[in-house]
Write a protein that binds this DNA or RNA. Structure first.
Ligand SMILES: [Mn+2]
Ligand SMILES: [Mn+2]
Ligand SMILES: [Zn+2]
Ligand SMILES: [Zn+2]
Lengths: 132, 132
DNA sequence: ACAGCTATTTAGAACCATTATAAAGTAGAG
DNA sequence: CTCTACTTTATAATGGTTCTAAATAGCTGT
């Protein structure tokens, strides 16, 4: 199994459900963005076993904690996740609610000049909203 | 009344509730960030009349539509609003969930090199997450 | 001032994404 | 194989936000 070690090495038991979700999330050429609802639909499409919604939530959160997924900061009634966990940015199309990756090279270096005492920077994310 | 014209000029009737909310939101030296829940508490503290939660939601959304407030893109179970509607950025302290303004001058110019066909850029917002 | 019209407020219900619960099932260690 | 901790699951609960529809209030024209 392709993802057995990935899971074992993170201290996550490689259950059938987790392995199937791994295939949907990580077996693709390109990375992608998704909501839980979209992932649930994709699972129903692509696999014949049923995976409960609770397990989908549990798994996505477990993967996020391990750094295999990240949330995208955006105002929406649903959480958007990203299978691209490298530092990068996003276009957000206000018309259709879709996200498009913006590579670091498309944005250029961002130099935060202000410091906050006792805190360090964990991430810098740019959201570029698009309209017609 | 200080906010009568502001409201009338936007096509919003200057009701007692809207005028009172204006005072809480816009009568301050500094701009600030808030959730609906925090605004509701502040209203209970500062004014003696009761304003229903539905009216608070209605008013905040009306003000946002008129450009007197904006939402801050961030992952949270609640929407964060900002009384600072100029283009600027934010630190987000993951420890306590608080936002701190980052002026454009603290970030430097951001040059988005990539274009999306048929779309134009409405806003560019940077979120800098802080950890210990 | 008054009538008539429309916008607004309101309490409460509904909505719905997410989280909690607790019982049944499963993986891995020994 | 057994034991235990972890995981899955159906289902309920939670909680922020939106909807509903009836009451109220601002505004325009007279
Ligand atoms: Mn199927
Ligand atoms: Mn009071
Ligand atoms: Zn992305
Ligand atoms: Zn701000």
């Amino acid at each position: 199994m392709k993802y057995l070690d990935k899971l074992r090495n993170s201290g996550l038991r490689p259950t059938k459900q987790r392995l199937q979700i791994c295939e949907i999330l990580f077996d693709t050429e390109k990375t992608f963005h998704f909501t839980i609802n979209e992932l649930d639909k994709k699972i129903k499409d692509k696999i014949d076993d049923k995976i409960s919604l609770a397990t989908i939530y549990n798994t996505v959160h477990a993967f996020e904690k391990k750094g295999y997924l990240k949330q995208i900061p955006i105002n929406s009634n649903q959480i958007y996740f990203d299978t691209n966990v490298t530092g990068h940015h996003h276009f957000y199309d206000l018309k259709d609610g879709k996200l498009i990756d913006l590579e670091n090279s498309d944005v250029g270096p961002i130099n935060i000049k202000r410091k906050i005492n006792g805190k360090k920077i964990k991430s810098i994310e740019v959201l570029v909203k698009l309209e017609e």
